[in-house]
Design a protein around this nucleic acid. Structure first.
Ligand SMILES: [Mn+2]
Ligand SMILES: [Mn+2]
Ligand SMILES: [Mn+2]
Ligand SMILES: [Mn+2]
Lengths: 238, 238
DNA sequence: ATTGTTTTTTAAGCATACTTAAATTTTATT
DNA sequence: AATAAAATTTAAGTATGCTTAAAAAACAAT
């Protein structure tokens, strides 16, 4: 009666969900295709198939939209992805650039039962090592209040880094070398246009970050105390 | 250049390997088909495809045989399966009937890299919670010297349980209730034929086990000391 | 508004992994 | 040795998930 869901379907639905959220991204077939490394034709085809299964709303030449069932599937996959990333980082000590690669696979063959066990073992974390929120078993997302892209943060104010969204080793090496980590406090000195760059200052150091990089960091206004442990239950134990 | 291996292929090759080892089993397409829950036609078809890929030697109407490449693939999958079972049992505390079900999936999307990390985390165990040996990264199997099926163990001698090969909850419930666990010492009182049954004695208790059950337990002659910790590195920590 | 570029869609085709039904071969029984 | 039963193979067909090439639509720019 209930037919199995393929890995391709899960990845597709997940990508639509994420591109729908992320500003600066759209959910047209071409964007999804580029992300998944498939042809435009394949993405259109998939969209039509998933529409038949009531996971996607598809209207020719329009952006793709998820149905409630599609959104629910996406969040379940994202939950498994982020639980695995948290686990692999904290327990096995995998590097930040390694966890995404492994989680991208494991997310698809992890039962709800096992996901709950991982969550329990980790003490029900609410964010992954990148600072991304982990959906709960019902698909609710703990929201990160006030978070913005570093590239969009108004200049002159102090912020705390709340997400590192990259997946490349080079990205994490750079962040580590420059002291950019979850919780790091910094001040945005300038937001330049043309070329778009963000100038930040942290403990004396000044960095000029190009837009591509400043878009993979999220920050929140640093109004509270210097460090709030409850907010960072996922910080890796060294 | 090197094309990806499907889950169906891995399961097929693994099953051929295991049926080739297990006495009382054969590797004809029908047997593999029954185990995997697919039609005979599908199994024949798969055998021919895998023969083209040099994973299986296929001759019409003959039993299937693995090539060295096929055997190597099977052992890599079995390694991942048993590492996951060990891990899920020891670390997450999953029950004996739950670990097989989860490992059956995870084994296919686990990189060699991750498998080695799991192995390292567990202290490089040599057997899984069922007592089955875990192949090393090169595909070498640590052999269990002198192990036989309980159903085939000559009567009159003392043995120690060395493998619990079932996957059903009922099987493990029964074993636990009767004190049958890895390392349990017992004496085979009688081997009955017609119907085939095995009578064992352990600490006063006498059990009469039908063949189906006595075939899922392996035992080794209990010559050594009562308990050899080096032999049972996989015993779950309570 | 017409033209040109980009994107999407359609069309045709291929590999994988299955199905059921019929034909063939093997195996077992009389 | 002939026949019956069981297993295997072949054949035909389906769903999935991709491809490339061509047609159609949308978008952008003069
Ligand atoms: Mn990730
Ligand atoms: Mn994935
Ligand atoms: Mn198992
Ligand atoms: Mn499997």
């Amino acid at each position: 009666m209930k037919n199995p869901v393929s890995i391709a379907t899960e990845n597709f639905v997940k990508t639509v969900y994420q591109f729908d959220q992320k500003k600066g991204y759209d959910t047209r077939p071409g964007s999804i295709a580029r992300e998944l490394g498939i042809s435009n034709a394949a993405a259109t085809d998939m969209a039509r198939k998933l529409a038949r299964k009531e996971l996607i709303e598809y209207k020719k030449y329009k952006e793709l939209r998820l149905t409630p069932a599609g959104r629910s599937m996406a969040l379940a996959v994202i939950r498994k992805h982020r639980l695995w990333e948290t686990f692999l980082h904290q327990v096995f000590g995998l590097g930040m650039h390694e966890i995404h690669r492994e989680a991208e696979l494991l997310e698809h063959l992890t039962s709800d039962f096992l996901a709950d066990r991982i969550s329990h073992f980790l003490g029900h974390p609410t964010t992954d090592p990148h600072g991304d929120p982990i959906p709960d078993p019902t698909g609710e997302l703990p929201d990160a209040p006030g978070a913005v892209l570093l590239s969009q943060a108004p200049a002159g104010l102090k912020y705390r880094v709340s997400r590192l969204s990259g997946s490349e080793k080079e990205f994490f090496d750079f962040c580590q070398a420059r002291g950019l980590a979850l919780g790091t406090v910094l001040r945005v000195k300038n937001q330049f246009r043309n070329p778009r760059m963000t100038e930040v200052e942290m403990e004396g150091t000044v960095l000029l970050l190009h837009a591509g990089l400043a878009q993979t960091l999220h920050v929140r206004p640093a109004t509270g105390p210097a460090y709030d442990p409850a907010t960072y239950v996922n910080e890796p134990q060294p």
